[in-house]
Design a protein around this nucleic acid. Structure first.
Lengths: 116, 116
DNA sequence: CCACAATGATACGGACCCGAAACGTTCACG
DNA sequence: CGTGAACGTTTCGGGTCCGTATCATTGTGG
């Protein structure tokens, strides 16, 4: 069963969730950072800088910098690949999982409050 | 009838739509700018700088700067209120409506492709 | 070995956004 | 009038992100 949305529901959902994120005053992530974080947590590992850059259609420094920022927030972690020490494997963290769990709760809550 | 989402659907939808936005490499709006734009187009007018600032829980310069940027993109327009010339009324534009219509299409399309 | 490729990180100059404060214009009201 | 408030804008210093180019490290193949 797929998810069928009306135009009003689609934009309304995006509206209320964006509004909730902005209002919460919490240090919010860039759209790119959010996309990277979701990619890491929703797609099976392993994840590398190069792979993420290709998937998101951005340059490698964008990924490196985003990992720097989100790493400082504790949302992701980086580990050298011992089998090929050129690679860096991006690891998930408890804080990151918690962060996305809360985001999911917000989306669900806002979706439930949508008119019709 | 309200919209009931599973956690997997909620995050999956946010993931694919964010990914689509990032990949399209088009002029990406800040989360705040997006929230402002949606507020202008989905909530009945009139909209003022002061009102938007209060609704989004941000300072007035944030609204002014966002309107500068989105105005340059043609997504919104500003008109002085003749009945109280201190006020500025934010107006919708055809380009803005088209932009959000496309965003809605993306959300709908990605929602339809979600697993279960 | 050694030149070369691949990977991720860094340097640099430019652009944008931020919060706080100050400003110009316009209105309200005594 | 004129004083103060309301509204939107601008300025300022500081921070983050961007794209391009370059770097250090590590692997690959002749």
């Amino acid at each position: 069963m797929s998810l069928e949305l009306t135009p009003s529901q689609a934009l309304g959902l995006w509206h209320t969730v964006s509004l909730s994120q902005v209002r919460s005053e919490a240090h919010d992530l860039t759209l790119r950072q959010m996309a990277i974080l979701l990619q890491i947590y929703l797609v099976p590992p392993p994840h590398t800088v190069r792979g993420l850059a290709a998937t998101l259609n951005v340059t490698k420094p964008v990924i490196t910098r985003a990992l720097d920022t989100m790493g400082a927030m504790g949302l992701v972690d980086r580990v050298r690949d011992d089998r090929d020490r050129r690679n860096v494997i991006i690891k998930r963290t408890v804080a990151g999982a918690l962060y996305l769990e809360k985001l999911g709760d917000v989306v669900i809550a806002e979706a439930r409050q949508l008119p019709y």
